[in-house]
């Protein structure tokens, strides 16, 4: 298991429509080049689960099962994240989670204990 490091989450915010996307990009996917270059920002690590699934049949190269969640972060930016399959019973829609950028270059989430 790789170590998850606490790097901030980079995102891009459109100066025209105010929408925020992750990972960062230059052209706003919603507005196109007419909105100018997107602003490069960072977003906080806490978010809310929009949906999740425990996939039993991932492609070659992944050990099943894998826990996936769509998490809504600050500025309504949404990211797909990997979780620990053992946490699957503790995850539900609207649950607060913490998202970290791993040293594998992917986002990982874990439940926030209240």
């Amino acid at each position: 298991m790789h170590v998850v490091s606490k790097m901030s989450i980079s995102a891009s915010k459109c100066k025209s429509c105010d929408r925020t996307v992750i990972p960062p990009r230059t052209i706003c996917p919603y507005c196109g080049p007419k909105a100018g270059d997107m602003s490069q920002i960072t977003v906080g690590e806490e978010g809310t689960v929009l949906s999740y699934t425990l996939s039993q049949m991932p492609p070659e190269g992944f050990d099943p099962p894998i826990l996936l969640a769509l998490v809504q972060l600050q500025h309504n930016a949404v990211v797909l994240c990997l979780g620990n399959p053992e946490d699957s019973s503790r995850i539900q829609i609207d649950k607060r989670v913490k998202v970290l950028s791993g040293d594998d270059g992917r986002f990982h989430f874990s439940p926030v204990e209240i």
Partner: peptide
């Protein structure tokens, strides 16, 4: 944003 995470069309449909 999806394939690198092991997401397949079935996993996305499940979400």
């Amino acid at each position: 944003s999806e394939a690198r995470y092991g997401a397949t069309p079935a996993a996305l449909a499940a979400l």
